[in-house]
Simulated scan of single mutants.
Amino acid sequence: MAPRGFHKEEMEKIREKLIEVARRKFGAFGLKKTSIKDLTDECGIAQGSFYKFFDSKEHLYFAILELDEIEIKAELMKEFNGISKMNAAQFAKIIIHAFQLVEKYPVIQRMYFLDEYEALVRKLPAELIENHITSDASVFAPLFQQWREEKVIDSTLSPGVITAALRMLFILTAHKREIGENIFDESLQLLIESLASRMFKEG
């Protein structure tokens, strides 16, 4: 049931507008420098009405991240499914492409590349983060199972461990400056290729 003051259709339109405006403002200014008032003013609703749609601006930020990640995962799955027999080199190439895809998504870029990850995680319920992590593993689980059946992947590695390793690589991008911007991309490629070599059997 729609909250008092808004019809169901209005709720859907306002929610879409909030996501549209927030995606633009979060991408340009970041989480900390974007206020709820910034969002509601442009959407033409009262500041208090925001909470009829999202519990906090962090929840809205996270909702956008999940929407953007769905698009990226769909693109990756399309690439993975387009290869008849996966190997380390092909896997590494697709994962490197995933980092390039992120450039099309400013909110994800800010979270991983501009160190907003910690600020976001601190404000969100642990259960929400845990559910997100679980869903990451479940998306790729069928692929890992297929590769196991094809005997091209190390069967001792669980989907959860592989997904966690990939997530760690993305989190590392938040520390690009500390690691060294001039060597980061090459170092990241080395880590991705090392992971791929560990996952896939030769021959």
Rank of each mutant, 00 (worst) to 15 (best):
T156H: 15
E186D: 06
V121Y: 10
F26K: 12
L76P: 08
K37G: 02
Y117I: 04
E71M: 11
I153F: 10
A165N: 09
E12R: 12
L124C: 06
K176T: 04
T34F: 05
R15C: 04
A2R: 14
A126G: 05
D136G: 09
T156C: 06
T156N: 14
F144R: 05
E69T: 13
L67M: 14
R23F: 11
G5P: 00
H132I: 00
E181A: 05
A119V: 02
A165L: 13
I153Y: 07
V102F: 04
L39M: 04
F91S: 00
R122V: 07
E66F: 01
A174Q: 12
F99Y: 15
Q189H: 06
L143V: 03
G180V: 00
E10L: 05
E130M: 08
E79Y: 13
K123I: 00
I96D: 12
S155P: 03
A88W: 03
A28C: 06
F62N: 02
L166N: 06
L65T: 01
R177V: 04
F91R: 02
V21N: 12
T163D: 13
K13L: 01
N81Q: 07
K73F: 12
I70P: 00
Q109F: 10
A164E: 11
I171C: 12
L169F: 08
I192H: 09
L191C: 13
F91W: 06
I171G: 02
S194Y: 02
H7T: 13
F113C: 09
M168Q: 06
D68Y: 09
V121F: 13
A164H: 14
G30F: 09
L157P: 04
E150W: 08
W147R: 11
M11N: 03
Q100D: 14
A46E: 04
R167W: 07
E127W: 03
Y112R: 05
A165F: 11
E79N: 14
E202G: 02
S194N: 11
M111C: 10
K73R: 15
K176I: 03
G5Y: 05
A74Q: 15
F99L: 05
L18N: 03
V139N: 09
L190Q: 06
D38A: 14
S84P: 01
Y105H: 15
M86F: 02
Q146M: 11
F99R: 08
S155Q: 07
F29K: 11
S187D: 00
I96G: 02
D115Q: 09
A98C: 12
V139F: 13
L166D: 08
L191I: 08
L101W: 08
G5S: 04
K32E: 14
N87S: 06
R122G: 01
F53K: 11
N81A: 07
V121E: 08
E12T: 10
K93V: 01
Y117L: 15
P106M: 07
S155C: 13
Q90E: 04
S49P: 02
Q100Y: 11
S35H: 10
D154T: 04
M86Q: 03
R198M: 15
I72P: 11
E130H: 09
N87V: 07
I162H: 10
K93L: 02
S155D: 11
L143C: 14
T134I: 06
